[in-house]
Each structure stands twice: as C-alpha cells, then as structure tokens.
Design a protein around this nucleic acid. Structure first.
Lengths: 191, 191
DNA sequence: CGTTAGTTTGAGAGGACTCAAAGTCTGTGG
DNA sequence: CCACAGACTTTGAGTCCTCTCAAACTAACG
C-alpha cells in the first residue's frame, strides 16, 4: 500500500530500513467514503493526509460561497498549509470527492521523526520545496487575466482532473463562475 | 552585517559555531545600485539573495508587459522558485528598486551544506515552510475578486511597502491596471 | 422512471480595461 | 534657487468581459 510513497521518498534520497519501518508504523491507513470532511474551518490541521487512492478537494468559505483552493489526487499530500505549520486554527476545509484510501500521520509524530532522524529533514525539505513550486505555479495561473487563458492553462496542466472533478469546482478553482466556464468551454469546443 | 540573519536562523534552531562560520564564509556580501537586474528571463537562478538593506522586485513578462510577482525587503530572501529548485532556466526577473546590500550564496554551496550538515536541512525546511505560507497567502489575495478588496488586503498586509513601491508595481502585483488602482485609492480616500 | 446533481443557455448590469490626455512630483543643472 | 525634464499619478470617455439572476436542459443514480 505504501510502496509508491516509499519509492517517491527513496528517489529523493535513500533512507534506512529503520526509518522506513518507523514511517510504516506511524502512517495510519484509513478508508473514507465520498463527501467526507477531513478538516473544517476553525479546526487546526494536525495531520498530513497522503492520497493512496481517490481525490480530495480543499476549499474555504468566502461571502457564503465555497472557493476551491486545491485538488489532491493519488500520491499527493494534503495539509492546510498555514494551519499545519503554525499550529493555529485555519479556515480551510478538506473534503473527499471520491471514496478514498489515505495514509495519514500526525504532526507531532512527524516532529519526533525530524528530531530523531536527521536524514528525514533532507527528504522533508525537498518535498516542501516541491509543494512550494506548485504553489507558485498556482499563482501564475491565477494571474492569467482572461477567463479563457486560465481554463486553457488548467486543461494543459491538470488534464487528468478534467475528467474527475465537477465543473463547478474547476470554475471555482480558476476563479470563474460556473456559467462563464460553461460558455468558454463551448467557445473552445467550436474551434 | 549578517547577525540579523543568524539570529533568525538560531530562532528556528540553534546551530553549531562550525556551521555558522561556514555560512559566514560562503555568504558573499554585494552592494548593488538601484535598477540593477540580478536575474533575467532565460537565465537559471543559481543564487539565493538575502536582502540586508534595500528592496527587490521580481517580475515576468506577459504579452510585452511586466507582471510584478513579488517584493523582497529587509531580511527576506529572493529566488526564482521554480528555476532555482529545478536548475532550469526560468522566466522571472529580479531587479533592485533601491540601492541594495545583499548577501548571496550559490545553490551548489548550499547543497554541499545540506549534505554535510543535516541540521541545516531542518532550518531550510522551516524557512521553506514560511515562504510556502506566504505563497499561499498571496494566492488568497489574488482570489479576492474585487479590485478594492485586493488593494485593501495589500494595505493591511504590506503597509511598509506602500511607501516604498511605485503604484505601477503595486497595481501589477495585485493584478490591476494603474488607472484602476488610482481610482480605487481616490474612492478609499474619500471615505 | 422520478429525483437530484450537474451543466448549459439567455438577458441585462456593472466593474475593470483600453486609449488618451492632463496633472503632479522629484531631482538635476543652469 | 528656479526651471525644466522625466517619472509617476490622476482623470476622462467609451468598450467589453464577466458577473448575476433565472430558467431550461441533461446525466446519473436509486
């Protein structure tokens, strides 16, 4: 179950068997049905959830509407960034869009591993850098000024999500109303 | 010159004198006049620049226009994120907006330190997390849908930059034209 | 086959944009 | 110390894109 994750880690830097066993022991596998909230506004995000299978959506409320901030599919990790790192309550929700199998670990366990296994700091640094890059790319998308550009960018970069995510959420993710997105899709289709 | 930086690092986790000396040795202090380009499109970002004094702007070109992606002032670090981590040429520019004193270190030196000093990975991870949080907050700003909201958010969160950065760049940073920003400022002033 | 979630289409309003011009500030040289 | 040049900001007029609200259509699921 965890072998893709361990492969991913080993590709960054090979780790000792001891550390591997420790991780396997601390990572809890959970099965969660569709439409389940893993985190809600006002809570502190204390876990990293790694998606073994399924799809997650993160969002926050803005003037009574859900604003979609991120999708997390297989082998990606979900945290509410600010809440997790600052240990303060956040304003994000994490929800399953599909039935999911997740591997999760508590921040406290993670901190212990950081302290006891220096090698893991190297891994964590690189992973954090990778997610930082994603976050920057996301900004780039949001700054594409026209609605059409943003959707084309989404199509290019997340084609696999197009099939799995309802349009409402994609619209929200790229900062459009559902109606506008629908019109853009029509326009693109006729080309 | 570097003591604020070392204080900052020690606050994350105290480091050995050996590491401190190594860093001091590898960090090069440079003095750069206003309006100097530290990085341009097509180049690979190989250095981290820490601002000792002064102010930097990062931007990229989009349809022949400069789009401002970030400001970096005292004690903050500048890299073109994707280019730096991937070692690929990027599309960002880094420019001094004021005369600057900078401390810089080459990525190769940094990698050596990562490999030889595991403790430094801990520091780097935490710093990366902090910048990751900023990046997420930036996204949050960009998703504020109205022009006025975005400007108010900027005022709240970067009041010190309001004095130092020309409006053109602020407008670009929050995704507006200069004219629109000017009108918003007028509107806000009359309240 | 009915119910609900998801998507498309329509009409009208409004905010931000573009292009253009005028005004204001700042610093340098006479 | 003034005057002028260049950088920066404000104002104006007109247009267009995206939004809102409303309703119809379609697909998925029990």
């Amino acid at each position: 179950m965890l072998s893709p994750l361990f492969n991913f880690i080993s590709n960054i830097k090979p780790i000792s068997n001891e550390l591997k066993e420790l991780l396997a022991q601390k990572l809890e596998i959970i099965e969660v049905p569709k439409k389940t909230l893993l985190l809600r506004e006002g809570q502190t995000c204390n876990h990293i959830h790694v998606v073994v299978s399924g799809l997650l959506r993160m969002y926050y409320m803005k003037d009574g509407e859900e604003v979609c901030s991120r999708f997390i599919d297989e082998s990606l990790m979900a945290i509410s960034v600010k809440s997790f790192y600052s240990r303060q309550p956040g304003d994000e929700y994490i929800e399953t869009l599909e039935p999911c199998i997740l591997a999760r670990i508590h921040k406290d366990e993670l901190e212990l591993i950081y302290k006891e296994h220096d090698e893991f700091n190297y891994i964590a640094r690189v992973i954090t850098e990778q997610y930082f890059i994603r976050s920057e790319e996301r900004q780039y998308l949001l700054r594409k000024q026209s609605a059409e550009e943003r959707y084309l960018y989404f199509m290019d970069n997340y084609p696999h999500l197009l099939q799995r995510v309802p349009l409402t959420y994609i619209a929200s993710y790229i900062g459009l109303t559902l109606e506008t997105l629908s019109r853009i899709r029509k326009k693109i289709a006729t080309k």
